[in-house]
Write a protein that binds this DNA or RNA. Sequence first.
RNA 1: GGAGAGGUGGCAGAGCGGUUGAAUGCGCCGGAUUCGAAAUCCGGUUGGGCCUCCGGGUCCACGGGGGUUCGAAUCCCCCCCUCUCCGCCA
Length: 469
Amino acid sequence: MIDLKALRENPDRFIDGARKKGVAVDIARLLALDAERRELGARQEALRAEQNRLSKEIGPKLGQLTGKLKSASGDDKAAIEAEVAEIKAAPARLKEDIQALEQRIASLEPEFNEILLRVPLPPDADVPVGTSSDDNVEIRRWAPNGWDFGKSFEANRGFKPRTHIELCEMHGLVDFPRGVKIAGSRSYILTGDGMRLHQAVLRFALDFMTNENGFRPLSVPVLVREEAMTGTGFFPAGRDQAYQINEADRGGGYDMFLTGTGEVGLMGLHQDEILDEATLPLRYVTVSTCFRREAGAAGKDTAGLYRIHQFDKVEQVVIDVADESKSRAHHRDMIGFVETLLQRLELPYRLLQCCTGDLGVKNADMVDIECWMPGRGEPDANGVPSGAFGETHSASRLYDYQCRRLNMRYRPGGETGKGPTTFCYSLNNTVAASPRILIPILEMHQNADGSVTIPEPLRPYMNGQARIG
RNA sequence: GGAGAGGUGGCAGAGCGGUUGAAUGCGCCGGAUUCGAAAUCCGGUUGGGCCUCCGGGUCCACGGGGGUUCGAAUCCCCCCCUCUCCGCCA
């Protein structure tokens, strides 16, 4: 959620930001509703003040009169009753007016909130303007010794690559047909070394973040309430991407949602808290199963392990004070962790600065990391794929957009600080999402005979095994 | 799944229709005392919205929402959450 005060002071910044992101949102309407809301609110508040003042006067008077009423009779009684009625009349009128205003304000609320939640965080000034992922800008790329991006896989390695699908089939790493039988399209079952490799990557990534980078490992709920989805900024915009568990209609009270990332649980952790500044920055990592409907992606990446409804992901988040330079520094760090991890796995990758059109509502800045996947891309005349980059990581900077929604604050100046409570800044980044990352691992480390060399760092997690096949 | 109890400030815990945003204790902060500290004493100590001539004004919030009432932390209804016992169970 954006800062309403900032919007009032500088609407153009948000109008411009929404335009750059390609988000259609009627900010003029929002401002009009806001003005009306405040105007009505001010009038209501004045009436309430009057009502409160009268109540304080009336109490004792009423007490006296009801006392008299007990001993009174005849004309006296009637006179007192009339006086009581008169005293009650003024506040009663106020009450009617207040309630009328209350109703008018309430009638504005749904539209107001609907628009407010959809106003995107403006992109940072240094984010390239663009309309889609085609306009993303490459920052840099890296490849291990012996790999030249300028040459084909065959030219690099001396043999034609097999796709991960072929490799999985060859070594019995995944059972796609039975996955589909059980759970429908985009489902799979990791089998044997496939499952072992999957677990090895996840555990390696978690240990790397925990042991080497000082992140605190946490488990998170993946089945959450709607508030957690809205608070973390995934709703309402991404509502159609989340699986909804229908509990309300079967007497469960309320519906639940399956999370598409561990970010929801990690960020929801400190919802509604005022954090001690001394504890910041918070660095959390989790591994969780992620669920995505992939609505709107019908027919896209239907084969293999690339685009699937359920996967596991090691996710990192950082929560810190409201400071842009720190936010940028954390971003660099978090990207650096991933680069180190990919380099240890000897996977070629590139960093992409996402353009404004590719940021989504909640990010001010986002860098995607794509690994080289030899099995992707258009096949040539001989049916050998060209290879292509495929997104494996996404590092976001959100400023206070998310923490504002989550109501996560700190008080500058520490425990004894007198500063105003301030919304924290948050960031998140993938560490490793599997099985998608198995694609470059299998395809890049395949040998001429189809066997796959297991990258060194994963071997301890596979009982020392050095190759598959 | 059945039966019951309860949700009040950082914590503990009063209040159960009328200046109660809330007693009291603990904690915390400031000050006094002290060579210093402990103890003691004094004072302070929730969050948010709106308006502001920046002095301040005003409203909201006692799990959440609605209702009754001139007036609700206190009464009523719905929801959420926690705890205890029984049943079931990884």
